[in-house]
Design a protein around this nucleic acid. Structure first.
Lengths: 385, 385
DNA sequence: CCGACTTATTTCAGCGGGTAAACCATAAGA
DNA sequence: TCTTATGGTTTACCCGCTGAAATAAGTCGG
């Protein structure tokens, strides 16, 4: 999709990615970091400064000539991120640091034709709202709950939207003239974290989120783990339900899948069956008061998540697992049971401790991750997987 | 460890690895395969021919000038592989195609000093036995059941041998003058498969083996998955035991780990508790005759393995999973239960089918994998992870 | 058997990214 | 002011790779 006349060479991209990963660095630091000579760095940085992609920040004094720290200019490029993860769809316009400059919500439509039209309209609206920040717009990313094709232009399947082989990427690229990338919601989320988040640059970590459904993605050896058929990280159908709990049938046809126990939908269903309020906040509040039924439901859900997390950690040995949850669940039985069950099933070794972090679920997270898809393309170029 | 005067450039290695991955290719094919010009390939191939690393094979006739297929010369280099996976230790000398040219068995000693001495002796013996095939000896690989350091010179922990921070790599390198690499047994196995095996070149597959213990390793994005702390693939402590079966305590302190149910040791223990013969062959024979207790034990073990395999497939989405088993287990209830349970818990998608292969357990497998460690170094150079 | 055609491989002049080493800039400290 | 230390720049050069042309070695149709 019309890659903008890519005047950036591999060397330029190396510098860009190093700075966006490691933060502000001087030329000499970059030289040692990248294993290139000072001469090379000097030339490449000159280009990037001329293109207003990098800027010189403050001087750092020591013995000898002070070094000038270089940073990526936030306004070097801007990106649009679209989340179709929930209804309504969220559209964000971010800069190269991940800062949000505009936000639009539009209804999430199922009909592909209509969806594309309404997204194109939403993009116009977003650009208008963003004003100057929409200059140097460099790409669009779309996050959706489903599988995408290998070229990341087409949504292969998406049950939530009822889509099958919808080439939304090319369609939007044609309408907007911008390179467009489609990605699974969990993958977009973790790519955003890798580029903009607190775990920026970590080569081995995983993210899990619990919402209506359950999603999961992994960064391994510094790269997104897609799997051979693009289905890696499908934690939601991990076999976790223990016999004693009476495994429920799952929509995938099996029994005892994680999402039959631990997704918000599953929790609500369980609450409904037990004659309890189906709202998560109310349910956690009741559990906090010691009501046995809500306690049991949340405990079982948290334990199942914990078990799946333990499976994940055993299998992949990440440095961190970020669990995104509705904030009311963090400190509830759910969170405690999750941590406890995970701890129980992790093989402990000396000097090794996988960090499990909770993080608030923000509707923006997915749209931000989607925007990072385009940012990835801007920084790493067409080759990057 | 004294890398032999590496006269091979990155370009040379690209060609070497492409041919050893894809098999015999012509110069022009290599050019398109690697995205290099024919001119470049021509020059690089000339060097490799001069060094007797490549050889020209038969002509392939079509329209126009016939193309000459190039192959890696088996005798371009030879490697020693040492398996400390079981007692006795197995030492192999292989060529660059993985063919075994000599084999020595020595007792596996626990004392590090003694072990190193006896291995050094064994290596001398091996070289003698191999004769001409030991020319151009290029490195040593060691596979052991335990964790190794990041530089792959030191065994960090190995419960089977009682080792802790034993720098066997450097020790053997000093005694032999050959670069030496230490690796976890499962990792060595899968690296051997990646280089020499039938799945050669596959970018996403996993291997599991069931012996005294259970081991597992993964190739992801074409690279070995080590995890952040080097502990990826630790399937043996995957939480699988279902409540109904009465989870057993594991030596890791948890309950219900895979290896408490499905390892050969666990099967023998279960048989012993049930007053059945503890020998696997006898047990499977009895199960084949329909004896209920042996059937139940093997079925439970196989199901547990199947469940863990399903977890693996869901998490990593490999193209293949190779399960290495004692041959008597393939066609027994164990194998059937494994396949059935795995099938049950895999999320099926259209056009997607993960292949689960059984393969015979050969004592040579690990030593062959170990040899491939050195071959990896020869082909891919010092940079390769 | 011959020329026309096709495809594989080699040769060669030149480009571009990268380098080492010398050089310049700019500070701290005596 | 002079010395020292370090960051960044300039310059001459190297090396891998390229495109285009040349060469090699067949098939195919007459």
């Amino acid at each position: 999709m019309q890659p903008r006349p890519s005047t950036l060479s591999a060397g330029h991209r190396q510098i860009l990615s190093a700075i966006s990963r490691e933060g502000s660095r001087s030329r000499t630091e970059l030289a040692t970091l990248l294993g290139l000579s000072k001469a090379t760095i000097s030339g490449l940085v000159r280009d990037l400064l001329a293109q207003n992609i990098l800027c010189e920040q403050e001087l750092i004094f020591g013995v000898g000539r002070p070094s000038v720290s270089l940073a990526v200019r936030a306004d070097a490029a801007s990106f649009i991120g679209i989340s179709l993860q929930q209804d309504p769809a969220v559209l964000l316009l971010t800069d190269l640091h991940g800062t949000v400059h505009a936000r639009v919500e539009i209804p999430r439509l199922s009909d592909p034709e209509q969806a594309i039209r309404s997204l194109a309209d939403g993009i116009l609206q977003l650009r208008e709202e963003a004003g100057d920040a929409a200059e140097r717009l460099s790409g669009i990313g779309i996050a959706l709950p489903g599988f995408v094709s290998h070229d990341r232009h087409t949504c292969v399947t998406c049950t939530a939207l009822g889509w099958r082989n919808v080439n939304i990427g090319t369609a939007l690229a044609e309408r907007t003239g911008l390179p467009t990338w489609v990605e699974n919601d969990a993958n977009a989320l973790i790519l955003g974290e890798q580029l903009f988040g607190t775990l920026r640059g970590s080569p081995d970590f995983s993210m899990v989120f619990v919402s209506h459904g359950i999603g999961c993605a992994h960064i391994v050896n510094g790269r997104l783990l897609r799997g051979h058929f693009g289905g890696a990280g499908e934690l939601s159908h991990a076999p976790v339900a223990l016999e004693g709990f009476g495994a429920l049938p799952c929509r995938c046809g099996n029994k005892g899948c994680l999402e039959t126990v631990a997704s918000l939908l599953a929790i609500s269903n369980a609450a409904h069956r037990a004659g309890q309020p189906t709202d998560i906040s109310t349910l956690t509040a009741l559990a906090a008061k010691g009501q046995p039924e809500p306690l049991a439901i949340l405990h079982q859900a948290g334990s199942a998540m914990g078990l799946a997390t333990a499976q994940l950690i055993q299998m992949l040995d990440p440095s961190h697992v970020v669990v995104m949850l509705d904030s009311v669940l963090h400190d509830s039985v759910f969170g405690h049971a999750l941590l406890k069950e995970a701890e129980t099933h992790i093989l402990h070794r000396a000097g090794v401790r996988t960090m499990i972090h909770f993080r608030d679920f923000a509707a923006e997270s997915f749209a931000g991750g989607a925007a990072s898809l385009a940012a990835h393309y801007f920084i790493f170029g067409p080759e990057a997987g």
